[in-house]
Design a binder for these strands. Structure first.
Length: 554
RNA sequence: GACCCCAUCGUCUAGUCAGGUCCAGGACACCUGGUUUUCAUCCAGGCAACAGGGGUUCGAAUCCCCUUGGGGUCGCCA
């Protein structure tokens, strides 16, 4: 049997880490067994599908180096004979199978309105009674049904669940999952707008597309008996199921793509923000629809600009968030694979090749896992430290081109490389050089020195103090012709040997603080070369002028 | 609430299916010491878990039951 797996996201935003892991597992399983991995877009919700959000995760998958054999065509991936791969383009396909179920009596039209159903659910809840659809429409006389249909009365199609059949799902991760007869209600398979529901479309498409293994999150486990039932009614084979545990936030709640939206809602409610803050580009209408309907989310762009306006930090949830934060895709893949799967034998760090060679369903962990940023960061650090210098430079450059073009623009090519090289050994992420090296990008005259402890320690303490050393070495540097790492090294070393008992730190740290405004920078010779002679001297001079402010007592 | 799933260090896990080699191994975090011109690294060491209770067995982290805890689902969302 040739294995075929699929990842079937709904186009409601960027790919989040949970989805990314499902996709990764599907992909790895297919690749391991020489099978086919396909992508299908579940866009059967007319209200929520948007073109803008739809393509985002194709880029995310590509960034993660997860390729697909069949599915939407995108940069060399996709195509295939079992499409179309957008469910909204498969309506006529579903029609045939709806008819089949209607003819066999396994499906019937139901005329209750959403409002009526909501009311019935509310009532059941109030009476602490589990709600199940009461099959009212099923007991309607045939003439009535015919008449309603004739009138064109809006209706859905419900699946008639057998009354006394125990349902067994044989899950490759969880084992046998049993659901007693009578637990399922007659669920909707076709909405009033004619679109299939998820349950129906997923079953038909998986079968028609020849999917052999359904690997998905455990949130779908409770739905699976419905799918099994539909497969039986339609005469389809059952695919093998593997339900993967969920990914949690550090606080133990489910990590969800809606977390950002939740945080924004909470903030807006707590601060009683009445209208969209100007500058976040959200109009009144979008704002009020959003606030009034918890099931809809703000578009990604609007959400992040609102976060900026409100000055709240959105949690990193989407794959794109991790890209922006300077994580390496292969590290995210490694970490995600490890979250819920383990190769055993104390092996933790591995590449995609290893994953493809070793991945299998029987080592998937059943219990949910919390997403641990610290560990991801540690892995990212290791990956960066193990990189060849030139590779780091190239990847850092690509990262800047994408996310921080101003950094590229600020340096000439050679200096940019030096900046990158000088930062490699202290970088945990690709943004670290930018985050800790902001002083490189500033104007000489906008550097300021805060009287914080490490600054005062470097400049004011000791005898002679840092300021005195700075003052003493300044003429030496001013007259230095060879402003290179080696030139500076010999000049400063020599000076330190003669005037600071060879203690380099006594002179390096005052210089560092003077040129950067703080206690953190790459090695001092590199820092001075990257900055250039004029800037370095100018900054030291300006720092000297601040002496009485920073060290009032001496 | 009903149904379903899960349960080993703070976190991710190995070990569970084939009970003894496990007074439980690794990684991240944390703590201590060392290296380093700052930061970040790096090195050495340390702390730390089988949720609780019953069984089964010569023997249980491993098998069974109950309790507790956590999670998922209960939409004309996917």
């Amino acid at each position: 049997m040739t294995i075929r797996t699929r990842f079937a996201p709904s186009p409601t935003g960027h790919l989040h880490v949970g989805g990314a892991r499902s996709a990764l597992f599907c992909w790895a399983f297919a690749r391991r067994h020489g099978g086919t991995f396909l992508l299908r877009i579940e866009d059967t919700d007319q209200k929520r599908s948007s073109d803008e959000a739809g393509l985002g995760f194709l880029e995310d998958l590509k960034w993660l180096n997860i390729d697909w054999d069949e599915g939407p065509v995108f940069e060399g991936n996709g195509g295939g004979d079992t499409g179309p791969y957008f469910q909204s383009q498969r309506l006529d396909v579903y029609g045939e199978y709806f008819d089949r179920l209607i003819e066999s009596g396994a499906a019937y039209p139901a005329f209750e309105t959403p409002e009526e159903l909501a009311e019935a659910r509310k009532e059941a809840r109030a009476q602490k009674r589990p709600y199940r659809y009461d099959r009212a429409s099923l007991s309607l006389p045939a003439e009535t049904v015919a008449q309603y249909l004739e009138e064109g009365r809006p209706h859905v199609l419900r699946f008639r669940v057998p009354d006394d059949q125990e349902l067994v799902v044989n899950d490759l991760v969880l084992g046998e999952v049993r659901v007693a007869p009578g637990e399922l209600e007659d669920f909707v398979i076709r909405k009033a707008d004619g679109y299939p529901t998820y349950h129906f479309a997923v079953v038909v498409d998986d079968s028609l597309m020849g999917v052999t293994h359904v690997i998905r999150g455990q949130e779908h486990l409770a739905n699976t008996p419905k799918h099994v039932l539909l497969q039986e009614a339609l005469g389809f084979e059952h695919p093998a199921y593997a339900h993967v545990s969920l990914i949690f936030n550090p606080d133990g709640s489910k990590m969800s793509k809606r977390d950002k939206d939740k945080l924004l809602r909470t903030t807006v409610r707590e601060r009683k923000v009445e209208s969209p803050p100007p500058g976040c580009g959200i109009d009144e209408e979008t704002w009020s629809t959003w606030l009034n309907d918890k099931t809809i989310q703000l578009p990604t762009g609007a959400a992040s600009s609102l976060a900026v306006e409100l000055q709240v930090e959105l949690p990193e949830i989407d794959v794109a968030d991790f890209d922006r934060a300077g994580y390496l895709p292969e590290v995210l893949v490694n970490y995600l694979a490890l979250l819920g799967w383990s190769p055993g034998e104390n092996r933790e760090q591995f590449d995609q090749k290893f994953l493809v060679e070793h991945f299998d369903l029987d080592r998937i962990v059943k219990s949910p896992a919390r997403f641990d940023r610290d560990k991801l960061l540690a892995f990212n650090l290791d990956a960066i430290q193990n990189m060849e210098e030139q590779e780091f430079v190239d990847r850092f450059r690509a990262f800047c081109q994408q996310h921080h073009p101003n950094v590229i623009a600020h340096f000439d090519g050679e200096t940019f490389e030096h900046f990158a090289r000088a930062n490699k050994e202290r970088s945990k992420t690709l943004v670290d050089p930018i985050r800790t090296g902001g002083f490189f990008l500033k104007n000489d005259d906008s550097i300021t020195w805060e009287a914080i402890k490490p600054v005062r320690k470097a400049l004011c303490n000791g005898d002679p103090c840092g300021y005195e050393r700075l003052e003493a070495i300044l003429p030496v540097l001013r007259s230095l012709e060879d402003w290179t790492v080696s030139g500076l090294e010999s000049a400063i070393d020599e000076w330190a040997a003669a005037h600071a008992d060879g203690n380099l730190g006594k002179v390096a740290q005052p210089i560092r603080v003077a040129v950067s405004g703080g206690p953190i920078s790459p090695p001092i010779y590199d820092t001075l070369v990257i900055l250039g002679k004029d800037s370095s001297l100018r900054r030291m001079e300006r720092c000297l002028e601040q002496r009485s402010v920073l060290c009032p007592s001496g």
